[in-house]
Design a protein around this nucleic acid. Structure first.
Lengths: 226, 226
DNA sequence: ACAAAAGTGTTAGGCATACACCCATGG
DNA sequence: CCATGGGTGTATGCCTAACACTTTTGT
């Protein structure tokens, strides 16, 4: 039965993953340095081919681990990019993904396979291979939109965090300042956070109460006004 | 150069299109009847393979014409489905699309290639081939969500329409009644509609004013409250 | 004591919601 | 003249947005 498909033109299916975190007050994306021409000078999203025995999701998760050293992450399919000449090596259709990790997971990023793995602020990207700039720009738009109506920010924070840190996630990705009092009022009224015992002291000032998400399972919540 | 990809496992890439319209007070989807086993008794979304020289978008639009006889339609990529055994004939990854057409375009649906092409209310679907039920359910969720924050309803209506017809699109897809006065107030306040000369008479009662969308280009507008 | 971030409440205005009657037409 | 859907306005409550001072800590 499988034979019947052989006669059709086959393309190669790959997956590319835009891995984001927020650190140093900026939204950053993880890139790996290309070794081969014609992209020797370029950086690229981690990714690779989808094998015959795995789904696109599984392939994305596999490349997340082997190419970027990231084990646990929020992962969501973004869009499928299929421009005919997007890859100079041949016809490659790419199923792109967004991954989010908390900034305290950052240590795991170097692997044997790729010496050059680095975070770049999305406002200051190097030359990118393929259509990866387009993918990143699309991913940022999706991320900003989802921030407003889901609890997706939980995937960018450690288990316990301060309200200030949560607010900074929003301000960084949305690119606008938010009123502290209104932000706290709104977030606390949604009952998606719970206070946990303990405070975080960061300098010569009052320590901040720690909070946690009641559920870190992604789901829709109207967090900011339209 | 192209040779270098030959060694990798190749999958076949297809596209499936969920074509929707609203008629007879119901959201309906266009299905075609399968001829081959093991899906002889089943209906399926129109679709087919993506060729080496076309993007997924182009393939979707091509199949829209050849398989379903639909020429002009709103078209949007939905999601890529990649379960390993979703197609019994072999590894086929499908890039699924949503298409929307106005209910006055309905005549074009029969083609030579497929005798059996029919609209089905989404509440009453026949047995479906592959994972097409899953695709349709996902498409409906996306459609309902986009109705609330875009002008996508314009793609389901003829150029000129009454406010009642517009409201029915919303009520049908969202599955809940809307207050007539509030709906009109809101839609007219958004300045996305313009009144056009002429009225539509449909029975023994006052004729309804005709309206048109100022722009039928899809874009975001907050139409209903969160 | 001072610098620096944490934490807290009120007010005004806009928007969504709820709700009932008159209008124009065909039969 | 009656049945049918088209068309309209107001009042209430909620939520958003704007805004400034006190508290707690380290140095």
């Amino acid at each position: 039965v499988k034979k019947s498909l052989k006669k059709y033109s086959h393309a190669v299916i790959a997956t590319d993953v835009a891995i984001f975190t927020v650190r140093e007050g900026a939204l950053q994306v993880l890139l790996i340095k290309m070794k081969k021409e014609p992209y020797r000078r370029s950086w690229a999203l981690p990714g690779g081919l989808i094998q015959g025995t795995e789904t696109a999701d599984q392939a994305a998760r596999r490349h997340l681990g082997t190419k970027a050293g990231v084990r646990k992450a929020y992962l969501e399919q973004l869009y499928t990019f299929s421009r005919v000449n997007r890859d100079p090596f041949g016809r490659v259709v790419s199923v792109a993904y967004i991954a989010l990790i908390p900034s305290d997971n950052l240590l795991l990023t170097t692997t044997d396979e790729y010496a050059d793995v680095r975070w770049f602020p999305v406002a200051d990207l190097p030359p990118l291979a393929y259509d990866h700039r387009e993918i990143i720009e699309y991913a940022i738009r999706r991320l900003a939109a989802k921030l407003e109506y889901t609890n997706i920010a939980s995937s960018l924070l450690p288990a316990e965090f301060t309200l200030q840190e949560l607010q900074q996630i929003y301000e960084t990705i949305l690119g606008r300042p938010l009123d502290k009092r209104n932000f706290r009022k709104k977030l606390l009224s949604l009952a998606i956070l719970k206070g946990v015992s303990g405070k975080k002291t960061t300098g010569a000032h009052r320590p901040a109460q720690l909070y946690a998400f009641v559920s870190r399972t992604p789901h829709a919540v109207q967090i900011l006004a339209p």
